[in-house]
Write a protein that binds this DNA or RNA. Structure first.
Lengths: 204, 204
DNA sequence: ACCCGACTTTGCGTGCCGCGCACTATGTGC
DNA sequence: GCACATAGTGCGCGGCACGCAAAGTCGGGT
């Protein structure tokens, strides 16, 4: 993003990280959802042009490396919502932010399929999606003027949004589906995001 | 549950499974969220009165063993919703079912804290909660007469409910909180469960 | 009451992995 | 150009998941 803001050293570090993560995902996709056990750490490291020891200076498991991209994306969710105009009603802002974040660029279907339909990756994939919740809850709280310490609304809504994104992803991956991801996302999100927090959200 | 319906052999198997799972959780709690690495497979097996090799005939990781109880509970979510009277509106039925499932008996705070606030357990814990979604979505689809193949509403709602339960759990665990889990659950769920699917849920 | 067959538990061996430690290489700021 | 901070690497250890085959255990049929 803002490479200039980073130390040259930090930029190299970031580059290695991405090289490893990218290599891991690529190799995983090559083996498919049922051959993940065949992706050896040594292969990932070699493909990334790095020693195996260095690989796990960055990631402490194959799963983490493979899902790293997804996790990074989730971390940006809060920022995405904050960048929406303040006047926009909550549900519109959330939907627009999520669609912007998840369809620009159009996600890699093979990658998403890999991380969402490989049992050994399931836990890490869920962690990746869940990472969006914290920042999202913060942003929602700011936008609705609620106190995240007392009101459950921001956190619950954030969790619901993350869940909707997951479900939309699953639906997008079903064979023969021709809808765009954006369309599915919009449909999924409108099932859970209200226009405003209910008046009784902060009741005792 | 219905022990009589099971072969004696199956009952023993179930008993060993529970012994291992229970021992694993107990040892994990003893070490606390930051000492999980000290819980060796050998210890779990010994505490359960079983050989290490047998332990991983049942579970393929410590995490899985520790969270097994939570996973089992999640599996019952669909059944819990189905057992509500058909006349009850969706949101009431869901809230009642979830509260019944998660507060009878009152959950073990130490256990929940362990599985929800230990980073190494996070993935498995999320998997455990997510297991409620499939059955829940089925039950919601049945109750609302929607087709889970085309409509996103059942799956999205199920995911939102699971998310709300997680958030409620987190909130219940914050130090100094005196509310009952049932109260928090009710508040969290009412943020996401509508009385009925929106009319446009099955559009397109 | 007994035995045969099915199932469970266990011991052993193997390959892989995560990580601590110490050393080297690289490039950064003075 | 030099000294220092930081990233990359080689080595070794402890632990774990799991395949395989032997031993133990239990249940049902006669």
């Amino acid at each position: 993003m803002n490479d200039d803001a980073m130390d040259l050293r930090a930029r190299n570090k970031q580059a290695t990280r991405e090289a490893i993560s990218h290599a891991a995902l690529r190799l995983a996709i090559e083996q498919g959802p049922h051959g993940l056990a065949l992706v050896r750490v040594h292969d990932i490291a070699t493909a990334a042009g790095v020693s195996p020891r260095t690989y796990n200076n960055y990631f402490s498991s194959r799963e983490e490396a493979i899902c790293s991209f997804q996790a990074d994306q989730s971390r940006r969710a809060g920022e995405a919502l904050r960048s929406r105009p303040a006047a926009e009603p909550l549900h519109q802002a959330v939907i627009a932010a999520v669609i912007e974040l998840y369809t620009n660029p159009e996600p890699d279907k093979a990658g998403l399929r890999m991380i969402m339909s490989t049992p050994e990756l399931e836990g890490e994939a869920l962690k990746a999606f869940t990472m969006a919740e914290g920042p999202l809850a913060e942003a929602i709280a700011t936008r609705t003027g609620t106190d995240p310490g007392r009101d459950l609304f921001p956190a619950v809504t954030a969790a619901a949004v993350a869940g909707a994104i997951r479900v939309a992803g699953r639906h997008w991956l079903v064979p023969g589906n021709t809808e765009s991801f954006a369309t599915i996302l919009r449909r999924a999100l409108s099932c859970v995001v209200p226009a405003a927090p209910p008046d009784d959200a902060q009741d005792r």
